[in-house]
């Protein structure tokens, strides 16, 4: 279970991003994860509920975007999706394949609170319309 270490690294990056932007809190954290990264989404989510307790991230939520495994065949050039333990070309059966995606372990984006240039009028924020997630 190394997901807790990974999660601590994630939160260190998130806090650094928040500090660099002058934020005072963090909302939704989006992570991009491939099955071949060696990190289990469920375990990462579980570790997150423990690791987030700390400055700025206590109220944060984790959103995991799972990426598909995609291969390109070095023999026939075909591109296809694959299973984690069957990384063969579906067209010609070759094992000479390159991974195009599926091993991602990325912090994609962070929602930051308190970064407004006019931070004084936040009390009636419930009246504001919710902007779409970027």
């Amino acid at each position: 279970m190394h997901e807790l270490s990974v999660c601590e690294a994630l939160l260190a990056q998130v806090r650094a991003t928040a500090t660099a932007n002058g934020a005072d809190g963090v909302g939704r954290i989006t992570v991009r994860l491939g099955p071949l990264s060696g990190v289990e989404p469920d375990l990462l989510a579980q570790a997150f509920t423990i690791a987030r307790n700390g400055p700025m991230t206590a109220e944060a939520s984790l959103h995991i975007e799972t990426q598909p495994i995609r291969l390109r065949c070095r023999d026939c050039g075909n591109e296809n999706e694959a299973e984690a333990n069957r990384l063969l070309c579906k067209a010609c059966g070759s094992y000479r394949t390159d991974l195009i995606s599926g091993d991602e372990l990325l912090l994609a984006r962070v929602e930051l609170h308190g970064v407004s240039r006019h931070p004084t009028n936040s009390t009636d924020s419930e009246q504001q319309e919710r902007p779409d997630h970027v």
Partner: peptide, 19 residues
């Protein structure tokens, strides 16, 4: 759910294992 006006989303795209 309301999102406060002072909420911004920033793109990071950095590897979690960078450190």
């Amino acid at each position: 759910h309301p999102t406060p006006a002072d909420t911004h989303t920033v793109e990071v795209l950095r590897g979690l294992m960078d450190a």
